[in-house]
Design a protein around this nucleic acid. Structure first.
Lengths: 146, 146
DNA sequence: GTAGGTGCAAATCGTTTGCAGTACA
DNA sequence: TGTACTGCAAACGATTTGCACCTAC
């Protein structure tokens, strides 16, 4: 399950950050969809309703949220500065290359591979990056009708 | 096994690209180390011996090499525009977070996970991104002595 | 009341493009 | 010899920074 606006806000406060309306708007935007967003995309979306908000604020807010692991950076989609709302705990992402929808999953079961790799190479393995890319059900149908 | 300079050059020619000394120098630089390089890093390295080469040429050469799958883009290291020489066939990377050394491996065995994910989510899965990050043997020793 | 947050403008960085000259095949 | 390639400079987009003002706590 993904983090809710309330949870994100709470964690933000717990870490001593102030809750401004700008931050709340950014959080709401990220939480409210299943896809991933670049800073500019968030800016354009938010800017429609709140023309006073600055792009700089988006950057600064995203930086904080990323540092607190409240949002996740994606790579497989294309842009490497694209974020989606986090889910608690260790998880990975399955991304639709057409609409950008992101689905979380747990249970990557890489421990075995990681161990044998570690043994073979002598590396001390600290982490991994795993993302799947494909087409979601809706976009598959669209492709067929076209 | 990773591609050699000769192999890269051959493939380049097979695809109708001309072999300039600039391209040869870039290829040699990428092939000659086990780590990964950003365009700027390659430029600086190459520029010492060949001050006439332009950064633009590095970009254009890397673009071609990437398109022909002769170099691989890495993400887990930090910079998202970092390349390492490719190995033939489906493979993944294990990256040292300290020295940047890259080790290839095959046999990611994600087919099972991929299938169950596909069944659960309805996604048609087209590909995946998998990278391990850690410390190579040499860098582990360094960390201990310090 | 005050520390932290915001917006603006300018600086900066990485990357791309237009164009005239150059070199590989 | 002709076409593709190069280097330069300029353009461009994304991101960061300095600073004066503002606001959540």
């Amino acid at each position: 399950m993904r983090l809710t606006e309330k949870e994100v806000v709470t964690i933000l406060r717990q870490h001593g950050y102030k809750l401004t309306w700008q931050r709340r708007v950014v959080i709401r935007t990220v939480v409210s969809t299943q896809d991933h967003h670049t800073p500019t995309a968030i800016y354009e979306k938010v800017h429609q309703d709140y023309p006073n908000i600055g792009l700089v604020t988006i950057y600064r807010t995203l930086e904080i949220l990323a540092r607190l692991n409240l949002i996740c950076e994606l790579h497989a989609g294309g842009s490497c500065h694209s974020y989606t709302i986090a889910a608690p705990g260790h998880h990975h992402h399955l991304i639709c290359s057409n609409c950008g929808r992101v689905v979380d999953f747990t249970g990557c079961e890489l421990e075995e591979l990681q161990q044998s790799l570690s043994k073979e190479t002598g590396f001390r393995i600290d982490g991994h990056l795993l993302e799947f890319i494909g087409l979601c059900q809706t976009c598959q149908k669209e492709t067929i009708t076209k």
